[in-house]
């Protein structure tokens, strides 16, 4: 692999992280608005406010970058980067088209999960380093939630990896058949719930619940650093959506996969992102004890049952 190719692939991943979250964010603006009987942004960019998030970015750049006097300065400043960079790596690992991913590594399923696990540290660092009680409470809620939902997330992905017999995302897509939709359904539901919780989106947004803890770990952040946290949230949404599409919906598989594979992957990812947005508009926030009960008494047993089911299926069919 030449240096040129490496830099091209890195640039592609960076562009994906800068563009796809904005598309997801704009979709959220518009879908949420119409679900609430509003129009949403209409001015920026001219046509139905398509450039609203670009305008928001420009606004964030102009704002003052404030570090609280009592904050732990280095950790406070580092946190947004720790939150965002893992998602750049994760997006680079996702195979979009047959034989096409920005970075191809053998154990990409595990690597994606691992970097997402690192990404959540950014929230915790922000929560602790802000020297703010709301940030601390938000950070604690966030940590408790991430701890609880990491396990079902990994278990449900492990089930798919077992069914495919490989730890490579591209290998999972190649092994995928439509009857996985039934066979792996419980795991898919567990993954969707756990991924929503991992992203701290409604109904699992207790860590950043603005009516309770202002903005949780992000309370003290301004300007570009705050924008990085927002970008990380939407990049996470895109990564989780694409990951769901790749692992459970067959990624690029579909009619004309040789030519239109990338389109199928993006469509399946967009479907999941839309579902996450729809859930956000429709459902109320869960309380902290409800979160924990759901994770440990429903999701973990369900994921373990799925793992057993997958094992039986693999043993019977091979």
């Amino acid at each position: 692999m030449s240096l040129l190719e490496i830099s091209l692939r890195s640039l592609a991943a960076l562009a994906a992280v800068l563009v796809l979250p904005l598309v997801a964010g704009q979709a959220e603006h518009k879908v949420m608005a119409h679900m609430q009987g509003r129009l949403g942004p209409m001015y920026a960019g001219g046509f139905h406010g398509w450039a609203q998030l670009v305008a928001d970015g420009v606004k964030f750049v102009q704002k003052e970058d404030i570090t609280p006097a009592a904050a732990d300065r280095s950790v406070f400043r580092l946190a947004p980067a720790v939150a965002l960079i893992p998602y750049v790596i994760a997006i680079a690992l996702l195979p979009i088209h047959p034989g096409l991913a920005a970075a191809e590594v053998p154990g990409s399923v595990l690597l994606v999960l691992a970097v997402i696990g690192v990404g959540v540290l950014g929230t915790l660092m922000a929560g602790w380093a802000s020297a703010n009680k709301y940030a601390l409470v938000g950070g604690m809620r966030s940590a408790a939630q991430l701890l609880a939902y990491e396990l079902p997330l990994v278990l449900s992905v492990a089930s798919v990896a077992m069914a495919a017999g490989t730890l490579s995302l591209a290998g999972v897509v190649e092994a995928w058949t439509p009857w996985w939709l039934v066979w792996q359904l419980p795991g898919a539901i567990v993954f969707l719930i756990a991924a929503t919780a991992e992203l701290q989106r409604v109904p699992f947004d207790a860590p950043i619940a603005d009516s309770e803890v202002v903005m949780g770990p992000w309370t003290e952040y301004t300007g570009l650093r705050f924008a990085f946290f927002m970008l990380a949230e939407y990049a996470g949404m895109v990564v989780m959506g694409l990951l769901f599409g790749i692992l459970w919906l067959g990624g690029w598989q579909g009619p004309f996969a040789e030519q239109l594979g990338w389109l199928w992957t993006l469509l399946k990812g967009a479907l999941i992102v839309l579902l996450i947005i729809w859930i956000r508009v429709s459902w109320p926030r869960m309380r902290e004890d409800q979160l924990q009960r759901l994770a440990w008494t429903v999701l973990v047993p369900l994921a373990l049952a799925q793992l057993a089911l997958t094992a039986i299926g693999v043993v019977v069919t091979t």
């Binding site: 595990l110 691992a114 690192v118 604690m140």
Partner: peptide
């Protein structure tokens, strides 16, 4: 690479988060 990834997944993703929760308490 598998050991490395499991190391990151389990230790950074879960154990250190647990340590930080304990510290926040």
């Amino acid at each position: 690479e598998l050991v490395a990834l499991v190391q990151v997944l389990v230790y950074v993703g879960a154990v250190v988060v647990l340590v930080i929760v304990a510290l926040m308490l």
